[in-house]
Amino acid sequence: MIVKGSEARLSSGALAGSILKMNEGLKNLIQFTGDTIEHLWRVTSLNQAVTLGIDDVKGSIKIGKDADIVIIDDACNVETTIKNGKYHAFK
């Protein structure tokens, strides 16, 4: 795959898919729908976990689930992640 600008293409030139980051997609969704993160978080978390059949351990914050968390600011920029107990700050 060749990533150039905002496109990902195969060596044949065919479009391979999107390079849009999940937080950027969430930001777009908030802007286009006018809805809130409180309603839309499932789109970037729970729905994927359900589809993958791992919602018993991923996709939401509940007792007994993995504590993998992405913390974003009001502009949907990633500030911090916690995965497998490892803390990563981006600001």
Rank of each mutant, 00 (worst) to 15 (best):
H39M: 08
V50Q: 12
Y87G: 01
G25K: 09
L40A: 07
E24V: 13
S60T: 09
I82N: 03
K4T: 10
K58Y: 14
F32S: 12
L15G: 11
H88S: 14
L29D: 04
V78N: 03
H88V: 15
I37G: 03
K86A: 06
E7G: 07
Y87W: 13
Q48S: 15
E7W: 01
I82C: 12
G53W: 11
I69G: 06
A67M: 05
G85C: 04
W41S: 00
K58V: 02
K27H: 11
K65L: 07
K21R: 15
L20G: 04
I19T: 11
D68E: 10
F90P: 02
V70L: 01
R42S: 04
K27L: 09
I19D: 00
G5M: 09
V57I: 14
Q31R: 13
T44W: 00
G85T: 03
D74N: 13
I82S: 04
F90Q: 02
K58L: 14
T80G: 00
R42M: 11
V78E: 03
N77K: 15
K62D: 13
M22C: 06
S6N: 15
L52A: 14
V78A: 05
D35W: 15
D66H: 08
D56F: 10
A14V: 05
M1A: 13
I71Y: 05
D68M: 06
D55Q: 12
L15Y: 09
S18W: 09
G59R: 07
K83F: 05
W41I: 08
S45N: 13
L46W: 01
G85K: 06
G59H: 03
I2F: 13
V43H: 12
Q31Y: 10
A14M: 08
S18G: 14
I69V: 15
R9M: 11
G64T: 05
N23P: 00
W41E: 00
L26D: 03
R42D: 00
K4V: 07
V43Y: 13
G34Q: 08
I69C: 02
T81N: 02
G53Q: 09
L52E: 12
G64Y: 07
M1N: 03
G85S: 06
L40T: 04
